[in-house]
Amino acid sequence: MSPFVPMVQSTVVAATPLIFAALGETIVEKSGVLNLGIEGMMLVGAIAGFAATLATGNAGIGFVAGAAAGTAMALIFAVLTISLQTNQVATGLALTLFGIGLSAFVGHDLAGMPLPGMEGVTFPVLTSLPLVGELLFHYDPMVYGSIILLIAVMWFLERSHAGLKMRAIGESPAVAHSIGHPVVLIRYLAVMFGGATSGIAGAYLSEVQTPMWAEGMSAGKGWIALALVVFGTWRPGRVVLGAYLFGGVTVLQLFAQGIGLNVPAEFLSMLPYAATVVVLVIICRDPKTILLNQPASLGRSFYPGT
């Protein structure tokens, strides 16, 4: 087996939770809402998914529970920012802090318990193919779920009527409101969708990537997902590409050490973050890409009036 196969496999597993969280946030931001609470929603999703799987023995139920918990968190955010017009940045930060604390509190007695993890899917014929089978057809179901989600989000944003409406709201909620689109309702739905995918991302961490619960186990992945949305300039395809790139650099630094490359460990662990900064700088050099794709009303509250 080529040593590159496990490298690709680790990259995919590392990128999958980022894809779920970042695609959800793309939808949220496209509706004009900035939710900085991904990290908190992920952690609550992680503990909910872990607890549900531990209780039922069914990973599927765990993901449903994770999504539900993430949605509930997002609902709090939606009520505060959309209905009560609180500041989105401050509320998002509060949501993250709340999620970190809540998940630690709820999960206190669950730390240190093992889960069996999730079996990979086997496709007839395809999985047994040499190389291609190993590279593409032996992951857990959620990896394929993340690809399906990508296609769905792309279709929704670029091809569907509802997606067009939502983008209009993100550009100018006042105009969308005046021609009769339900701004508040659609923003609620978008925020809740983002909560559900963040919850799934969290559940992926505690059920598949490392099947166990540990306090603060998302280790900043929620913030990376947030950066990926800007990194991908609000385009789902690029967001996913960014997630794989980020996962790849993380794995690459470990791989380089394993083959005995003499690079300082601190430098290597800095690499993924440095790469993010570099790409962000490159993107920002061309203001047009940002302006074209960034929702014009991002982060601003909307008063529907009477």
Binding site: M1, P3, V5, P6, M7, Q9, S10, A14, L205, Q209, T210, M212, A214, M217, A219, K221, T250, V251, L254, F255, Q257, G258, I259, G260, A265, E266, L268, S269
Partner: peptide
């Protein structure tokens, strides 16, 4: 083969390190 994870506790990264080492034999 030695891989430095630059952390005492990060399950995700430790798992990747383990997979990398196993991938290299």
């Amino acid at each position: 083969k030695v891989v430095w994870a630059s952390t005492w506790y990060d399950p995700g990264k430790e798992r990747q390190a383990a997979e990398t080492l196993m991938g290299q034999g």
